[in-house]
Computed example of a mutant assay.
Amino acid sequence: MNVGIIGMGSIGMLMAAYLGRYHNVHVYVRREEQKEKLYQEGIYCDAVGHPVSVEAHLLEEGFPQSHDVLIVAVKQTGLDSVLDYSFPSNTPVLFLQNGMGHIEKLLERPYPSWVGVVEHGALKQDYCHVLHTGKGVVRIASVTKDENIKKIISSLNHYDFPVEYEPDYKEMLTSKLIVNTVINPLTTLFQVNNGHIISNSYLREIAEAVCREACLTLNRSFEKEWERVLNIAETTSENQSSMFKDMMEGRQTEVDAISGYILKKSRTPLPYHQFLIRAIHALQWEKGVRIHG
């Protein structure tokens, strides 16, 4: 298949490295320097064990290729600028952002819109190198009806990089949202790896309260979702959350798209969420990151 990937952060690179073994992968980036590096060296993932060749393009030049699927792997904070580009109307577009604030925008698009949840851990080292720090599954669901989704997912699926179909995108994204609102802000605020949510009893108590707030707001079973949070914290115990990495590298975090989304949905005060959002904003300010809008 012909696969396009927009955004060469850790997840975009991981997807390109694995899918590029069996498919014709085209990647779209913003910097000429990165384009040239990827064209010359390909992408090297430690778990794959060899460089994977990709075709590299500048995003501003548009989409010269006809893709079977186009994957958008930029952060939620960079999504609006990507949505300004004209995607081919007959090409399904898979969005891999955290949070759920972008769903309404996708419903308005003329092309088939899919959303995905990536349960892998990845760490970008430079333009061409990425570490696969935790193995999981890529789950995909359709926001707008598309009869081809199962066929394409079947083609993407591989035993060492499983891709699975999910029938309900709201169910899938809501569950991931709860995990993110618990793990991401707390690991960022306390500057710890994911496993400390379990091993630090004080931090675990706070995490449980955050999970209760989220489940109450989103009408989910606390017991089920808390078990999922603990399972993911355990399987990714040595990993740094994406928000923690963004903070350390001086980038705007996705706290508003994750915890802020839940706060806006609530009809009652959420003191833990309110504090975490303000605390992350304060840390961003100290890092020199200014939020506009």
Rank of each mutant, 00 (worst) to 15 (best):
A141K: 07
D146T: 02
Q97G: 02
E166H: 12
Q240C: 12
D160S: 12
E225G: 05
D84Q: 15
Y261S: 04
P162M: 10
I198T: 09
R30N: 05
F161M: 06
E108P: 01
S155T: 04
H120T: 08
N90G: 11
L79P: 02
V179A: 10
D80K: 10
E32D: 11
W114C: 02
M243T: 03
S266I: 09
P167G: 09
S154V: 00
G99R: 00
G78L: 05
S259F: 08
E104R: 13
R220Y: 10
G4H: 00
E238Q: 15
N148Q: 15
K150P: 00
G293E: 15
H129V: 06
F244R: 08
Q191P: 09
A17K: 03
A17P: 00
T268Q: 14
Q40C: 11
R139W: 07
I183Q: 01
P112C: 08
E171P: 10
L156R: 01
P64Q: 15
S113I: 00
K224N: 12
V48Q: 03
P64I: 13
A257S: 11
E249Y: 13
P185F: 11
R228H: 13
L177R: 03
Y202Q: 14
K37H: 12
R204N: 13
K75H: 04
I153V: 04
S81T: 09
Y272E: 01
V255M: 10
N231H: 14
R204Q: 14
R31W: 06
M172F: 08
N180T: 12
L58Y: 03
R228D: 08
G195T: 06
H292N: 13
N2G: 10
Q65Y: 10
N98M: 05
L38E: 00
N24L: 11
Q65S: 12
G99N: 03
P185I: 12
K170S: 14
Q76N: 09
P92T: 01
Q34C: 06
E36Q: 13
K135A: 15
E234V: 09
K245S: 13
P167Y: 07
T187W: 01
I152L: 06
A207F: 01
E286Q: 15
T268V: 15
V27C: 04
F222R: 06
L70E: 00
V117S: 01
L96S: 01
A141R: 05
C211K: 06
N2E: 08
V229G: 03
D68R: 05
Y18E: 01
T253V: 05
V182Q: 03
S201Q: 13
Q97M: 04
L131R: 12
S199R: 13
Y39M: 13
G9S: 08
L218E: 01
K105T: 04
K105S: 12
E225A: 05
A141G: 07
S199Y: 10
M8E: 03
V117W: 00
P92S: 07
V130C: 04
K150I: 00
M247V: 04
H102E: 03
H196A: 15
A282I: 06
I103P: 04
L58N: 03
P51N: 11
V54L: 06
I258C: 07
R31Q: 10
L156H: 01
P92W: 00
A279I: 03
S241Y: 03
Y44L: 12
Y22R: 14
G9W: 02
D256G: 09
E108S: 14
Q284T: 01
V163E: 04
A56W: 00
Q97P: 05
T174R: 13
R278G: 13
H196M: 15
D80E: 14
N231M: 15
P110L: 11
N180D: 06
